[in-house]
Nucleic acid binder design. Sequence first.
DNA 1: CACCATGTTAGCGG
DNA 2: GCCGCTAACATGGT
Length: 272
Amino acid sequence: MPELPEMVNYARQLSGCCAGKTIAAAAATRPRALNVAPEELTALTADRQLTGLKTHGKHLLLTLNDGASLVCHLMLDGYMRYAAAGEPDAAHPQVQLTFADQSTLGFYRIQLGHLHYFPTSDLAAIADLQGLGPDPLATDFTPAALAGVLRGRRAMVKAILMDQARLAGLGNRYSDEALFTALIRPDRPVNSLSLDDIDTLHAAIRGTLELAIEAGGGAEHPVFAGDGLTGGARSQCRVYGRDGEACLVCGHTLDVKRIGGRNSSFCPFCQT
DNA sequence: CACCATGTTAGCGG
DNA sequence: GCCGCTAACATGGT
């Protein structure tokens, strides 16, 4: 579930909660989610300050003041939660960072996800980020850059949009939404798109992601107690998961097609 | 209970 | 090499 807007929302919310805090310890009940032993993670991060949070696609980077970084990917349904000192916590985090003031940052349900330690914060030197395509919100992601990503391909446009090696950050939900906004069918072969189509698609991708970010992303769980923003984007879906229901624009029944092993919902009338 | 949904990777065949 | 498909991973929801 967590796609780019959800991860950007985590970066924003957690910046307010724990940027500047000093890490005291790390613990893991699921060591497989780490790339170092739990006790080693504590040794590597203890007394370091969490200087910032940033994202590339669906990856979240927590940078430390000694130049190292922690890279998190939540995969299917992982989530993160910040808790002030002494706050009761119903769920059990599989990985947890404890700060010097006894507040905590927990990582939940990351059976398939991970939190990896790297001795660098240089994006180009972090193995987890190698081979990823451009982040669609980066300033240099222009319509021409999108055209470059699509050039020479024959695959269905949605399959390319979800391919993290070509474009980092879009999953099933936001690719469906962006294609609906762009009035392009998800099964259109990429080489059938005109330059105008690509311009429209570029604007639709940007617009869809920015709107979702401003609404707080679509995550199920609040980031901290009293978080009233996170999840606001869940009501913005116009096609994702709505197949069989009426198109909000024309009233036609939304269709569904399997693409890249995923269900794609679209309006067979609006989208061509 | 069986199945499907999510993201990613690896492997297979056209 | 490109493309589409499948299985595997874990879990909760129907």
